[in-house]
């Protein structure tokens, strides 16, 4: 029996028994989101079958394929996943990457996971296998249900296969560092954001602003001269992406706050990425007050680490939106089998 038919049978059995399933890939992001109540469904064995033609800029593989395997293959062809996804552990899979929908340092410039997803093969809650989207750059036939899977944390179905857009690696990449107070660093980033500079990542922490430039050798060189600063090592970007920096080792609540890039600082900001659009805060403030503050600035707050998995992790939705989410969920998963409660309570 193929690994796919095993999964189909498991889901059909779960429909018959009304047993909810907790889908698990490499378990690298099991801390993310609420606790799922149900029987484990291991999808990491459904791996491989990589179809990749570099000149197409598209890669397709089974959802259990390890992210590290994919990135090694891309690097050998001088290409990359443009959204720089975090792994968090060596087991990270392609399907988990899509379900979590987390993008790394390049996100504001290179796009997000959902921007790159072109299609998925999905096992829905009726036990049917659907091909949604495709393997081409442009496709407007049918509703865009493949991008809907990104960040849904497995609540809409079992991902069997994913097609993503990939990009050439930049010919040159350099990291600059500037010693700046926080308000000056913020102003500087806003000003740079309005200039045609080859930015591909920023990080501000404790008086230091790091900036990565990516592009052709001459383009990067020109920007480097125009911007000033000192050149520094580039290992930092993997450290912030993988959260191996000391800040992320906290036992306290770690908040991931998404704001308009030019929004003023939140109280207690520890680290800023994405040109100002992503702020990390370690804080014991009540969730309510952090969320209100983020919402007032036009953003939202996720309780990323340091929670018990029982309360709401993601920013609560207004009632009409939550009701719509529930209807969308039932359209794909009518028996509420997949990852119940992982994204929101009651979803």
């Amino acid at each position: 029996m193929t690994t796919e038919s095993v999964l189909i049978n498991r889901v059909r059995q779960a429909i018959a028994d009304s047993t909810p399933l907790c889908i698990q890939g490499g378990a690298s992001k099991s801390f993310y989101g609420r606790t799922c109540q149900g029987e484990p469904l291991d999808v990491s064995g459904h791996a491989g079958d990589i179809r990749y033609e570099p000149s197409e800029l598209v890669l397709t593989a089974r959802a259990g394929t390890k992210l590290s395997e994919i990135e090694t293959l891309l690097a050998a062809n001088n290409q990359m996943l443009p959204f720089e996804p975090p792994h968090y552990s060596p087991g990270a899979t392609l399907g988990g990457m899509v379900a979590a929908g987390l993008s790394g340092p390049r996100r504001p410039w290179g796009g997000s996971v959902r921007d790159a997803v072109l299609g998925v093969k999905l096992l829905n809650g009726r036990g049917e296998v659907l091909r949604l989207g495709g393997q081409v750059m442009k496709n407007v036939a049918g509703y865009d249900l493949s991008r809907l899977m990104v960040g849904a944390l497995g609540t809409l179905g079992v991902l069997l296969e994913v097609s993503v857009k990939v990009l050439p690696r930049p010919a040159d990449e350099r990291t600059l560092v500037f010693e700046l107070d926080d308000d000056i660093a913020a102003a500087r980033q806003i000003a740079w954001g309005r200039q045609p500079l080859p930015l591909s990542a920023t990080l501000y922490e404790a008086g230091r602003l790091y900036v990565r430039l990516s592009g052709s050798a001459q383009g990067v060189q020109a920007a480097r001269v125009a911007m000033g600063g000192e050149e520094t090592a580039s290992a930092l970007w993997a450290e912030v992406r993988e959260q191996t920096l000391p800040l992320f080792q906290t036992k306290q609540a770690l908040w991931r706050v998404s704001l308009p890039a030019a929004a003023p600082a939140m109280p207690g900001e520890n680290l800023t990425e994405w040109g100002g659009a992503l702020r990390w805060i370690v804080s014991d403030e009540p969730a309510e007050s952090i969320r209100q503050h983020a919402a007032a600035l036009g953003g939202h707050a996720t309780l990323f680490r340091g929670h018990d998995g029982m309360g709401e992790v993601f920013h609560p939705l207004p009632p009409a939106m939550l009701a719509l989410h529930q209807r969308v969920k039932l359209a794909l998963d009518p028996h509420s089998l997949f990852n119940p409660g992982r994204l929101y309570q009651g979803l």
């Binding site: 997000s112 865009d144 991008r147 998404s258 704001l259 308009p260 036009g298 939202h300 929101y344």
Partner: peptide, 13 residues
């Protein structure tokens, strides 16, 4: 106005 809103990606849908 911020990136990657919570919940399902209804913007894409």
């Amino acid at each position: 106005q911020s990136l990657d809103s919570p919940g399902y990606d209804l913007l894409a849908l």
